[in-house]
Structure formats: C-alpha cells, structure tokens
C-alpha cells in the first residue's frame, strides 16, 4: 500500500506572510488526520493547497488514484484537476454557502454532483439524492426545497451529502462544524464519524475543536506560523504533547 496523498516542501507567501513554510505530510488510504492550530497558522491554506485550490510557490503534491497512478496536483491541467475533484475527492467548506448552490434545490445539489461525475439516468439520480438525504438525516420529502429553507446544521449535512454521493476516496473538510451550535456540532460530528468509518474514507480536516480531533482523527498535525510543529497518533499528541505550543493548546482546552 502507498500513500494516497503526499506533499513535500510546500511554501506559500501572501506578501510578507509565510502562510506555508516548508510543509511536508502524507495521508494513507482510510486514514483520518486532523490539522489543528491557532487561527492564521495556515491550516486552511494548507488544505486548499493540497486540494489544488491554491497554488504553492514551491513544493509539490502527489495524489495516487485507485489504480495506483500518481498525479502531480499542481502540474496537472485545470481539466485534470477538475476531473479529480469531481470523481476522487470531496471538499467540505466551513460555510455551506461555499459548497452548495443556493439557487438549486436540495435534491438538485446532490444530483448535480452525480451528473458531473457522469450519471445520466434521471430516476436513478433522484433516488440516490433521496437516499443520501436520509443518510445525513435530512427528510427526503424536502428534496425539492431550496437550501435557504434549511438551518445551518442542515445545510452542512446537505453539503456533506453532495460531497459523498459520488463515492470520493479522499475528503477535505475545513472546520466542518465551525459556526454551529454546540449541540448541532455534536450531532454533525457523530454523523461524520459514522460515515467516515463506514466508507473507509481518507480524510484531512481542519478544526479548532480538540475534542473533535480526538473523536475523529487517527493522527493529529499541529501547525503554527505556517509550519508543522508536531504530529503523531491522536492520543499521543493530546496525552503527551511535546511542543510548547501543543502543550498550550491542550492545556487551554482542559481549562475550558
């Protein structure tokens, strides 16, 4: 078995800010990795660079598909990258509005992604949309409603359904539970945990929530000032943190 995603020496500057400073990491099939760190530490930038949504100044990202073929994400053409994003990857944005089409019905949001991946049979697409609404605990009877009728937590679940309906192997999530009530967060995390386990997905997710990282992740990466300061098995990073910044992060959570 080899890594599904390998990044090596990623640098990215925004003016004087080094958003990514020599970041290297790998992700293995079925592995769930959390990226934690203070705001502005480069977590979202890293996720976007890995998913081909931002272009690093230096370094490379390699994605290995189900057949074992390697794709260099930033050397690929825009069309190749879009194809990977449609068939092999999913990206869940913090704000559902960035991941949904607000002018399209709930069922349409799910079906549209299936069609982009090549599905043509209308009845089959509608049935898959209904099935996925149920899987993310949305009432399929509401599939013709627009997403704006849904609460934030429901919109986020719809975004997850849209992302997973095509059966991606690799999913990126940027603060998937950010901006939601605590009780809604817990339910959403639980849903994500179940789906990730059931589907055996490789997941890279950014979170501020240490408890969420402990709950979902096999491995934790700690970022500060654009660099990885510590990484390891989730329970080891949280129970025996080595870096001063990780100790601060863990201590702040326990105090809260």
């Amino acid at each position: 078995m080899s890594a599904i995603l390998e990044a090596c020496g990623l640098d990215l500057r925004f003016g004087a800010v080094r958003a990514l400073d020599g970041v290297s990491l790998d992700l293995w099939p079925g592995e769930v990795v959390a990226i934690v760190g203070e705001s502005g530490s480069g977590k979202s930038t890293l996720l976007r660079a890995l998913a081909g949504l931002a272009t690093p100044d230096a370094g490379r990202v390699l994605y290995r598909d189900a057949e074992g073929a390697a794709h260099e994400v930033h050397a690929a053409s825009e069309a190749q990258r879009r194809r990977l994003a449609r068939t092999d990857w999913g990206f869940v944005h913090q704000n559902p509005r960035d991941g949904l089409r607000m002018g399209v019905s709930a069922g349409g949001n799910i079906g549209e992604r299936l069609m982009a991946a090549g599905a043509r049979h209308y009845g089959g697409i509608r049935a898959a949309a209904a099935e996925w609404m149920a899987r993310v605990e949305l009432d399929p009877a509401r599939m013709d409603e627009l997403p704006r009728n849904f609460s934030g937590g429901m919109q986020q679940r719809l975004q997850i359904a849209r992302c997973l309906v095509t059966g991606p192997r690799l999913v990126f999530m940027d603060e998937p539970t950010g901006g939601l009530d605590v009780s809604v967060q817990a339910r959403l995390l639980d849903l994500i945990r179940g789906l990730v386990e059931e589907l055996g997905l490789a997941v890279l997710f950014v979170t501020h929530d240490i408890a969420a990282a402990r709950l979902l992740a096999h491995r934790i990466i700690v970022m500060r000032h654009g660099a990885i300061v510590e990484e390891g098995p989730a329970d080891r990073v949280l129970d025996d943190p080595q870096h001063p910044y990780t100790q601060l992060l863990v201590a702040s959570v326990l105090a809260a």
Binding site: G232, P233, D235, R236, D239, D240, Q242
Partner: peptide
C-alpha cells in the same frame, strides 16, 4: 503502561 500502549512517547 502508557508508553507501551503508545499513548506516551
């Protein structure tokens, strides 16, 4: 014990 369990490095 936690070193053996892998919780502690």
């Amino acid at each position: 014990m936690r070193c053996i369990a892998g919780n502690y490095g």
